[in-house]
Design a binder for these strands. Structure first.
Lengths: 252, 252
DNA sequence: CCTGCACCTTGATTCACATCAAGGCTAATA
DNA sequence: TATTAGCCTTGATGTGAATCAAGGTGCAGG
């Protein structure tokens, strides 16, 4: 069997293809946490018709870059992506990690240009949802319109939580909160909430949480010593969920 | 002339009233930067019909509180508000300041409950836009739907800029960036971009920028000494816009 | 197999901002 | 006019995370 190298040349343009990537929303096992949520099955069919699926993105390939024309939002079918902005002095601010079932790209709507870049942290399958079609469909399907408003609102509240985390919490609390967030999102997808492999590097974690690599590493060591986490490079096991919650100290 | 004390008892419920607050979107001088932007005049009329105006909010009164049922989004007609969350340990994270023409409350859509509280920093007149009506109207008016998507997206990108600011920038840069932001927003409303009165306290600024009052105060003193700002309590004059931009160091 | 490189860890030192402490200014109220 | 309370400023000291530095680990390619 041949390996499908995505042929985008890392320029962010996904070319349609007719391989086994052709799943549909109706039978996608993520449809209960993704866009189709809240739609009737005949409505799902219509949504499905506007969605474009393409060859998977390889690790480190970009889905889009800051400043690119905004055409579509994207749903993650498999793999993980990070969204990030590059500051003028070349440093990188990671604004989010996106797991299967999650939607990204909504920050591009306001200026018709992507406000951040998105890059695959590992091989990733993506559903592309052309925004103009989504708008038309939303006008016709109140449930879809409502759901998309909610998705955007969720993005806002999540950003606000990150703002609070960055502004008020210690390094231990920040890393703890991220581990809990990943744990929760795994649970939503019926995966283990206590054992997982981190798709992102320590550098990415640092750039997301406003910490340096060294600090992130030290926090992991500390949590390991306290028997809260078992850390083996990217393999994480949560040994003491209550202890982790206490450490994260988020009141939720 | 009698003084109109708002009779909400600070419980966040605005009661309709029939006083001189009755303006309409068609003649509101903010309509070029507010929701009506991008609407034809007959469409503006329809939007106007769903908007409720009430007695002004007095200083320190709440428009809504974290956890309140979400019913409406709000536009600021005059005055300034702050949105904030209270952390479990009682500290306050200010998530945004809202000036005339700006929309707040969109973070409540995702859970049908407000994710933050909003409080008037000075007497403020507010337009209330019931969300269910806005949804219906959006289905009928593609331009309105599009504009509201864009407003939400703008909120996301602004939050992301704050995230970057908090995670990567020094105290000087953070305060500088806020001054520039206020300056720009004043310009949009045809007010002076170089002289203004801060509606918020030093504590609020600190809680927004992730700094203590003392640090905020010291930054102002430093900028004054460098002849970048003239600071007289809440009265600010920008003396050296270029210097301020350099100090804020935001590349935009 | 060795080599190189990317990524992670650990220790020593430094520094920006928090914390602690005190005093000043302004405005509302008696 | 005196009194109080809220807000702001300034100085001295402390500290958590950044920075600097070095070494370890695991994987890809020759």
């Amino acid at each position: 069997m041949t390996i499908h190298l995505a042929d985008t040349g890392d320029n962010g343009v996904l070319k349609p293809c007719t391989h086994e990537y052709q799943v549909n929303c109706g039978n996608c096992r993520l449809n209960s946490i993704c866009l189709p949520l809240a739609l009737e099955s005949d409505d799902i069919k219509q949504l499905d018709d506007i969605i474009q699926r393409s060859k998977p993105l390889q690790k480190n390939q970009h889905l889009y870059r800051e400043g690119d024309d905004f055409q579509s939002v994207f749903a993650v079918r498999s793999g993980t992506l990070k969204a990030y902005k590059t500051t003028d002095d070349g440093r990188e601010q990671v604004t989010g990690f996106y797991f299967p079932g999650e939607i990204l790209g909504m920050d591009g709507i306001s200026n018709n240009a992507h406000a951040s870049s998105a890059k695959a942290l590992e091989t990733a399958a993506i559903c592309e949802i052309p925004f103009s079609s989504l708008e038309k469909l939303s006008s016709l399907m109140p449930n879809l319109q409502r759901h998309f408003f909610q998705l955007m609102s969720r993005e806002i509240t999540e950003d606000q939580q990150l703002i609070t985390l960055l502004s008020k919490n210690s390094a231990d609390e920040r890393v703890g909160a991220l581990m809990l967030s990943i744990s929760t999102r795994n649970a939503r997808r019926k995966l283990s909430s206590t054992q997982f492999r981190l798709p992102m590097s320590r550098v990415d974690i640092g750039n997301y949480l406003g910490l340096t690599v060294e600090t992130v590493s030290r926090v992991f060591s500390r949590m390991q010593k306290m028997d809260i986490l078992q850390v083996d490079n990217k393999e994480i096991e949560i040994l003491d969920l209550e202890g982790l919650r206490t450490m994260a100290n988020l009141g939720r």
